[in-house]
Design a binder for these strands. Structure first.
Lengths: 239, 239
DNA sequence: CAGTGGTCTAGACCACCAG
DNA sequence: TGGTGGTCTAGACCACTGG
């Protein structure tokens, strides 16, 4: 067992047995180093591991604190009608910020995902969505240009699915891929994540009734203050 | 911009511009240190960050390699009929290993999740599931004892949902919570994960037609060789 | 101002792997 | 055996927070 393992175990035990209380400051790195007779770098490794596992967080110049993971708001993912609708019922204020919107030709990867050839133009859309003034999700959408009515861009920006409905594009199938990933610097900055902690990533492919792919979206969810649920109401034998 | 940022950028550029090929060995930590005029620990930090973001992997005594994330097998999560069914159609061999099975009284947290009082007995079930001899998911299930027919434990172990069906427990609703997390040592060892990389975590609550909660399950999915998809076939306005 | 965490150094010893 | 990554050390300087 390594030295940093012992320090991790010590801190974890203190959290689980309420020696440290939620949101309380723990010993400084120097104090831990002295207490365990190790170097400061070894303490830092132990602390960093627990930060990444959501037990602790650090504030530069102040100290290391026990994280409180209770009382997270719930966001429901299963309403394709859009972010705004999801949040209204929770009495949360939702704001969508369009960071980037441009026409492009698709990369190899994207033309494959959208099942179109590389000469067909697409639209690249990058949005940052806030709930109660906090950044919650970065959504990066690739959509064939032919599906975008430029006279109704604002509606499209706010909710792709309301827009799709009103333009009479019928989506017959959604393919979702779920992942846990560590975000790159861009996503970290947008979501205002200071530490090196995982986010929940969802890749969405929407398929129309005629088999064409309406959109491909990558979404990065900030797990700091929200949790992400889906409710499936079905007879079990229809799954 | 920190020194380790520059080394990260250098490595990332080499990957993206195919200077490093997939599965190829990159410079050793000592070589990078010399090339950038920094200490070895600084190189290690840059490499560790890219390992955590799935660009690299390390083998002790050998070196650091570029990871290939193509060609992952697909596992479908939306068939509650069970792991075995999901994998058959992909021509993958599925094995379930029961690591632990015991009666318990629920903790505060679990009695809340199952909506039962703390005097009601539950069953704790910990399973490790393999596909093609590789560990893919750890499932930890909490289920009220009253729902477990001890004469049919083997069927129950293999597929809770086939079992539920055959015992006439009708599930009306599934509540799923999605997360990205860094696994603790136990999960890492079971899934044979060497590096400090995120897994995909799914928490499942199954609700019966009479409102009782049939089970609460935490599942940790190894993203190394598989990806996890769900297909929703619906009219968009029924979401 | 003293204390905190963030970065970085130039070493050290170890276990592991290959030839 | 020489090279690799894994752990650890005993320093250093910095930027930031609070009193």
């Amino acid at each position: 067992m390594m030295k940093f393992d012992k320090i991790e175990e010590y801190i974890l035990n203190n959290i689980k047995s309420d020696v440290y209380l939620s949101e309380e400051k723990i010993e400084s790195e120097n104090e831990l180093a002295k207490k365990f007779g190790v170097s400061r770098m070894t303490c830092r490794k132990a602390i960093e591991n627990l930060v990444q596992r959501n037990y602790l967080y650090k504030i530069k110049g102040k100290g290391t604190y026990v994280k409180n993971n209770e009382n997270k708001h719930i966001i429901y993912l299963n309403e394709a009608i859009g972010f705004s609708e999801r949040t209204k019922r929770e009495n949360l204020s939702a704001v969508t910020n369009v960071l980037q919107y441009e026409e492009r030709f698709p990369s190899d990867q994207i033309s494959k995902k959208l099942n179109i050839n590389k000469e067909e133009r697409i639209v690249y859309l990058k949005r940052l969505r806030f709930i109660n003034e906090e950044p919650v999700v970065v959504e990066i959408t690739y959509i064939p240009k032919k599906f975008v009515n430029e006279k109704r861009l604002n509606e499209f920006f706010e909710s792709k699915y309301n827009y799709a409905l009103s333009e009479n594009y019928k989506i017959k199938e959604m393919q979702k891929e779920y992942m846990g990933v560590l975000p790159n610097r861009d996503i970290k900055e947008l979501l205002n994540i200071k530490e090196n902690i995982p986010v929940f990533k969802l890749e969405n492919t929407a398929i129309l009734e005629n088999g064409e792919i309406f959109e491909y979206t990558k979404a990065f969810y900030n797990q700091e203050k929200y949790k992400f649920l889906e409710i499936l109401k079905k007879d079990i034998d229809k799954y």
